[in-house]
Design a binder for these strands. Sequence first.
DNA 1: TAGATTGTTAATCGATTAACAATC
DNA 2: TAGATTGTTAATCGATTAACAATC
Lengths: 211, 211
Amino acid sequence: MVNEGPGSGIPDIVIGRLPIYLRALNRMLQEDKEYTSSHDLGQRLGISSAQIRKDLSHFGEFGKQGTGYNVSYLYEQIRHILQVDRQWPMAVVGVGDLGRAIANYRGFVPRGFRVVSLFDADPAKVGDRIGDLTVLSFEVMTTEIKRQGVQVAMVAVPAEAAQQVADQLVEAGVRAILNYAPIMLAVPEDVHVQYIDPVIHLQRMTYYLKP
Amino acid sequence: MVNEGPGSGIPDIVIGRLPIYLRALNRMLQEDKEYTSSHDLGQRLGISSAQIRKDLSHFGEFGKQGTGYNVSYLYEQIRHILQVDRQWPMAVVGVGDLGRAIANYRGFVPRGFRVVSLFDADPAKVGDRIGDLTVLSFEVMTTEIKRQGVQVAMVAVPAEAAQQVADQLVEAGVRAILNYAPIMLAVPEDVHVQYIDPVIHLQRMTYYLKP
DNA sequence: TAGATTGTTAATCGATTAACAATC
DNA sequence: TAGATTGTTAATCGATTAACAATC
């Protein structure tokens, strides 16, 4: 192992591409493809082969000259690097339409995550069952998150409530937040936040459209 | 006007930040904040003031030395640049849990988009009413999209179906696709695609977490 | 006026790409 | 072997930042 783990100075932008590679490799596995190459993978993803080789070289040597990469081996290596070769218990805060869709989504488990608790501020929703989970109140959130050792949470509450929710999550020990509320969160620097705001993505495209 | 419009060589990465600025400016408007500065805006967004000034300078001169930027003026200018000072009619394909959440989301209209039609392959869903829309079948999709002049679509179907749906959308005249299916779409180069896959975002964070 | 902040230039920094020896 | 493809180095490209004259 040449170099691995956070703090070892690998650029964030490289880390950000690994999940993309992982998804493509998983697809190849489904297609029973045994080997791939940086060229092949790059072509599927619209990324240069040089970049893929360079990215992977930060973590070790995973290929063979002449034959390329064993799909299943590379897949497992990247899963290990990203630490998704295990299941992260995850909390979902806010069970509106979106929170419900998240709670029901079947796509998390096969990729390293499992929703283990749901929270909502609305007393009318507390007690509702969604899948095999019961919606809990904000009052028990800290306790429950600590009890389950949850480090990852998804926030799907209105923008006005998001910062306060984030504060409470951080307080409870959450270190990674996926925020669906259209607002930037202020968190300590050892807490990671990623944002999903569909409108941002839409507005990135309209610039290029004909009126 | 110094420089504006697509094809004028402004880096994609700059365009990608404008919606972020827009969202922050909108928030300032809600707070009745009349003026801001590159420093102030940058602080809120975790971006350097130099970058904000540089980004804006691609499109014109919007500020005043000594006083900064009039929030409402800058907001309107960026809305105009991004072409979100109008409403783009939008189609949603796939009305599972996620499609339903999208269809019900109140956040599109104030930011330049309106869902005008819903489609699903499942005959059991066709005819369902969601909000004030009726779910239509794939058979009528092309016709309906052409009729309404829809250029923007959101895809929320299973990965297996996404490419075929995208092909049909492009055929019908769609030029911007927001894809929720966890798969890269192959489209002509004048068609824009943005991707939302929550798992990708989650996996970008687990790398940095303690086991 | 004095202080603040812009828009812009040049310097720096970092990421991507091209090229190729090594080797399967 | 001949062909293919890796991992790596150096070159290129592009984005970010620092600095400052202009000026409100």
